[in-house]
């Protein structure tokens, strides 16, 4: 067996400033990797490099493609990488308004990826969109409503449906629960966990919320100043932190 994603020595600088440096990890199917750290620690830079939104200055990211086995996505032709990005990968953004098309209906938002890979039967696309709305707990009767009429939690669930409709194997998430009410967060976490389990998704989730990491991530990487300072099993890192920064992070959380 090979990992779904192998990242080696990923580096990105902004001029003299370091975005992230020498980051590496393996990600296996069904595995959720949490990346934590404060703002500016490089976790979003890392995610954006992986998503192809930001060219890295160095490093490799080998993704186990369905057709040709492991390929370094940083050295792939752009067209190929973008095709992966809309089929086998998903990118869930913190602000659902950045990841949705607000001027078309919920159904069209979900159906877009299907149409992008060649679906040309309106009835079939619509039926699949309705199924996904139901799966993310949105009333299928709202299929023709625009996402601008949805609540924040619904928008985030719609963004997830829109991303998962092509059955991607790798999901990148940037603070997916940020900005949501606590009760809405719980619902989303539960949904995500079910999807990870049922679809065997591999997930990289960036967050500063340690509770989210504990409930969702199998493994966690702690980043500071662009580097990984500690990594391991989530509960081991959170309950027995070794690095001074991790200890500070864990002890800074206000107990509810």
């Amino acid at each position: 067996m090979t990992p779904l994603l192998e990242v080696r020595n990923l580096t990105r600088r902004y001029g003299a400033r370091t975005g992230c440096e020498g980051v590496g990890f393996d990600l296996w199917p069904g595995e959720v990797l949490g990346i934590v750290g404060e703002s500016g620690s490089g976790k979003t830079t890392l995610l954006n490099c992986l998503a192809g939104l930001l060219p890295p200055d160095g490093g490799e990211a080998w993704f186990d493609t369905r057709e040709a086995g492991p390929r370094d996505v940083f050295r792939m032709p752009e067209g190929e990488r973008r095709r992966l990005a809309r089929t086998d990968w998903a990118f869930v953004r913190q602000n659902p308004r950045d990841g949705l098309r607000l001027n078309v209906s919920a159904g069209a938002n979900v159906g877009e990826r299907l149409m992008a890979v060649g679906a040309r039967h309106y009835g079939a696309i619509r039926a699949e969109a309705a199924r996904w709305l139901e799966r993310v707990e949105i009333d299928p009767a709202r299929i023709d409503d625009r996402p601008s009429t949805f609540s924040g939690g619904m928008q985030q669930r719609l963004q997830i449906a829109r991303n998962l409709v092509t059955r991607p194997r790798l999901v990148l998430m940037d603070e997916p629960t940020g900005g949501l009410d606590v009760s809405v967060q719980a619902r989303l976490l539960d949904l995500l966990r079910g999807l990870v389990r049922d679809l065997g998704l591999a997930v990289v989730i960036v967050t500063h919320d340690l509770a989210v990491v504990r409930l969702l991530a199998h493994r966690v990487m702690v980043m500071k100043d662009g580097r990984v300072v500690e990594e391991g099993l989530t509960d081991r890192v959170l309950d027995d932190p070794r690095h001074p920064y991790t200890q500070l992070l864990v002890s800074s959380v206000l107990a509810a």
Partner: peptide, 18 residues
């Protein structure tokens, strides 16, 4: 330690689902 809205029955069933 559980996700707040998951019912007790599913919390117990989860290790089997996994």
């Amino acid at each position: 330690r559980v996700i707040p809205r998951v019912p007790a029955l599913d919390v117990v069933a989860e290790p089997l689902r996994a």
